[in-house]
């Protein structure tokens, strides 16, 4: 229902122009909870992503923010078909991904890649850097032998590492360098679209900027489109063109960066923005924080109506009864709230 209004407003833009690289429509990702040893029956579901719609334009960076457990990482994975979505559609450059299987899906993977959060867990510790970066090249038969070696070395150079590191193992590198290796692996297949899943949150402060700059640089160089998933609003503001805010499996607000940060409509976005500490004691002394009470409810059993109503200071009776629609309040600024602004 919510998606349809969003659909109405975006369908004209989507249909002909081809400006949108990825169009997600009413994507649902539920993880079944089962019981029983031999005959497993479903007793419920973790509704990690519960009907979200958005689009990513060619060449832009869409930031996806939310707190842990809101479903932002699941969204990225379901979008890349690393999970099989429970429902909805994901169109990539006009091709429906959710119905692709086997070989045709494998071919599509060449065009969309992922950079992972934990640079310590995302690289196989038993493989050399050369093998790690060379694997996608091998899998897609892009090059072999000497040519593959050259390509790997070139990729290492592109991400700012010494090209002679190909025989090294991941544990010999620092976190920031490993993340660079992860970036090189993603770039190896020359993708159009990269999902960056919290690529800097596991890194040290002084290293984060190095990776952010690298990502920005590569975007210009290779004409990449990013979905940048993060919980850090400052970084998302820095890197994104547009920003989507997620809460408990739903996108509650989506707008251009400046618009979202200057005029947040959804109370959750407002609370989120006010909670981010700013490294300036003068500003901090003057700021008024909206301190939300309580915790994020469980995605197994989300609240009725608007999912935020249990923590919202504006909540009225209607909020617990009717799920607000995702409506375009001003140009390219969508929000799902009964009392926006």
């Amino acid at each position: 229902m919510a998606a349809s209004t969003f659909q109405e407003t975006t369908s004209t833009a989507t249909a002909g122009s081809g400006r949108n690289l990825v169009v997600v429509d009413n994507l649902v990702m539920h993880f079944p909870l089962t019981q029983g040893i031999i005959f497993q029956r479903q007793v419920g579901a973790v509704r990690a992503v519960d009907g979200i719609s958005f689009f990513v334009e060619k060449g832009e960076t869409l930031g996806l923010v939310g707190e842990s457990g809101c479903g932002k990482s699941t969204t990225g994975r379901a979008l890349l078909q690393l999970y099989e979505p429970t429902g909805g559609s994901v169109r990539f450059d006009g091709t429906e991904l959710t119905t692709l299987k086997g070989e045709s899906l494998r071919k599509m993977r060449r065009r969309m890649q992922m950079i992972f959060q934990d640079p310590y867990a995302s690289l196989n510790p038993r493989m050399t850097v050369g093998d790690i970066i060379g694997e996608p090249i091998e899998v897609h038969h892009l090059a072999a032998g000497r040519k593959k070696q050259d390509r790997v070395q070139e990729l290492l150079k592109v991400v700012g590492l010494n090209p002679y590191f190909t025989n090294r193992y991941p544990h010999e590198f620092s976190g920031g360098q490993r993340q660079r290796i992860g970036v090189a692996r993603a770039l190896a297949v020359e993708p159009d679209f990269i999902v960056c899943d919290e690529p800097i949150s596991a890194l040290d402060v002084s290293i984060r900027a190095q990776i952010v700059n690298l990502l920005e640089e590569l975007q210009g160089k290779f004409n990449l489109t990013y979905l940048f998933i993060a919980h850090d609003l400052s970084v998302v503001r820095h890197i994104s063109d547009r920003v989507a805010v997620m809460y408990l499996g739903k996108i509650v607000e989506l707008a251009d960066r400046k618009e979202l940060y200057d005029h947040p409509l959804h109370p959750y976005t407002q609370a989120l923005l006010s909670a981010v500490p700013i490294p300036d004691p003068k500003i901090e002394a003057k700021r008024r924080r909206i301190i939300l009470t309580g915790d994020v409810p469980s995605p197994v059993n989300p609240p009725s109506g608007c999912r935020f109503h249990t923590r919202c200071w504006k909540a009225q009776k209607i909020c617990s009864e009717v799920d607000p629609e995702f409506i375009e309040h001003s140009a390219r600024h969508w929000a799902a709230c009964h009392f926006p602004g």
């Binding site: 402060v205 002084s206 984060r208 900027a209 952010v212 400052s234 503001r237 890197i239 700013i278 300036d280």
Partner: peptide
Amino acid sequence: LLKSIPRLDE
């Protein structure tokens, strides 16, 4: 340190 972190109010 101060120059390497993006600020929410930048």
